[in-house]
Amino acid sequence: MSDEDGPATTRTPRAEVRARLLAAGADAIAEHGVHEARLDDVAARAGFSKGAVYSNFSSKEDLVAQVMQRATNLVLGALEDLVDADIPAADIGDVVRAAFGRHDQSAQFALLSEFRGYALRHPESMPEFVRQRRVLQDGVARLVRLWFGAHPEIDPGMPLDTFTTLLIAANVGTVFDAPALDDVNPGEVVATLVEAVIRRR
């Protein structure tokens, strides 16, 4: 098993160690929850000793916060890769359909649910949860403003902040209810919402 404490000639770069630990932490938390996720399991999943966890994160709470940050970054990165100002109005529904529907969101939602429950049970963690959700909301709002700013001929029919809230809520709500929705695709739901509300002025 590799370990960042091995000989210098085989030392894994610190950035790779952190990335692997964060990915393993996300898997462990989604599978077992914050309380039951053990640091030695996280380390083993990543291919390191438990010491590697403590040399990269100050505590389990720090690891949890960084896993949440990683999850937020992954969602925003996926959206930023697909949404830009040059997308024609006739194509925006299909782009949204791809952006929200291209990945299985079940693991992502398991993480979000666990973070939300953990923050409710541990109020000291709520500010970090709120901060992360606002980062996501601000990122989506930035993309919404970017696209509508480049398409003044399109009327969203509501304030853009409200539109952003609806997009996020439609996606989260659909993923939440997925077991009861007979394989409804969140991307299809969000895209249908977009296509329904945008109108030429």
Rank of each mutant, 00 (worst) to 15 (best):
L136I: 07
L111N: 12
P127G: 10
L39M: 15
A150W: 07
L82R: 06
S59M: 04
A170Y: 10
T12I: 06
N185E: 13
D41K: 15
R200A: 00
T12S: 04
T165E: 09
E36L: 13
G47E: 11
D177K: 12
D3Q: 07
A169G: 15
A37F: 01
A191K: 02
A85N: 05
H122V: 15
T162L: 07
E124I: 09
H103F: 02
A141V: 05
Y54P: 00
N56L: 14
G101F: 04
L120Q: 00
F57A: 06
F163H: 03
A65P: 02
F148V: 00
R14Q: 14
A169V: 04
E80C: 10
E114K: 07
V75G: 08
T164K: 03
D41C: 02
R70A: 13
A99P: 15
A196F: 04
A44H: 04
P123G: 03
G33N: 12
P159K: 07
H35M: 15
V67I: 11
Y54C: 00
G139H: 08
L193P: 01
M1A: 15
D138T: 07
L112W: 00
G101K: 04
A191Y: 03
D155S: 08
E61I: 15
R199L: 10
H35I: 14
G187P: 12
V75H: 05
G101Q: 06
L143N: 02
D84L: 05
D5T: 15
H151I: 10
D3S: 14
G47F: 08
Y54Q: 12
M1G: 12
I29A: 14
N73G: 05
A196N: 02
E31W: 08
A119E: 01
A65T: 11
Q105I: 09
G139S: 12
A110Y: 10
E80P: 08
S125P: 13
D94Y: 04
A26W: 10
A24Q: 02
T9H: 05
A19E: 10
G139C: 02
G51H: 14
H122K: 08
M68Y: 00
D84P: 02
I168Q: 05
V96D: 02
T165V: 05
F129E: 11
F163K: 07
H35G: 13
S55D: 06
P123T: 00
P7V: 04
N56Y: 03
W147N: 02
T162W: 06
Q66P: 03
V34E: 04
G77I: 14
S2R: 08
R199I: 05
D91H: 05
T192C: 01
T162S: 06
D84Y: 14
D182F: 14
R116C: 01
A98L: 08
I198M: 01
P13E: 01
S2G: 14
V172P: 04
R199Q: 11
L136C: 09
D40E: 10
K60R: 07
R45P: 03
D84F: 09
F100K: 05
A8Y: 06
R199N: 11
L82Q: 05
A191E: 13
T162H: 13
A26Y: 06
L21V: 00
D104N: 13
T9C: 12
V95F: 01
L143R: 14
P179A: 10
A141R: 11
A65S: 08
A15G: 07
F48D: 03
A85S: 10
A99R: 05
S55K: 06
